[in-house]
Design a protein around this nucleic acid. Structure first.
Length: 126
DNA sequence: TGTGTGACAAAGC
DNA sequence: AGCTTTGCCACAC
């Protein structure tokens, strides 16, 4: 993949990130609107099953939210998890999800119909 | 090389 | 249904 292609996919700034982070960003880029994936799902798609924690680190350093919709990456227990900016960030994450039709319980922060909305069929990487 | 750091996860209680 | 270990991984220093 050429650099311009990479920049178009994950953003110019993200194109300088370490290899694993780039793989993560490319995977997250593929999560369809209105669907969600867990940190573990993304780790597996990026080629490192079990690296869920490292995915969280990658998300926290994401430089281009328009190309890498990290609000669609949630916890395996069905709760939305964290987001940059502390509590206000989490509120923003919930809002973004709601805008694409993903309903989140305000009290428990659990995604309604999580199993149904969970996206795992990432295309196999070239 | 070794250590510390998390937007996690599964198991134990 | 919750809270607390314990294990995990890639990365930065």
């Amino acid at each position: 993949m050429t650099r311009p292609d990479l920049e178009a996919e994950i953003g110019e700034d993200n194109a300088d990130a370490p290899p694993f982070f780039q793989a993560v960003y490319r995977a997250v880029h593929r999560i369809p609107r209105g669907r969600v994936a867990t940190y573990g799902d993304v780790a597996a798609a990026a080629g490192s099953p079990g690296a869920a924690r490292a995915v969280g680190t990658a998300m926290s350093l994401n430089q281009d939210c328009s190309k890498v919709p990290c609000h669609r990456v949630v916890r395996a227990d069905g709760t939305v998890g964290l987001y940059g900016g502390g509590e206000a960030g989490v509120a923003r994450k919930i809002l973004l999800l709601r805008e694409e039709g993903v309903e989140v319980d305000a009290a428990t922060r659990r995604i309604r119909g999580f199993a149904r909305l969970r996206f795992t069929s990432f295309p196999e990487q070239a």
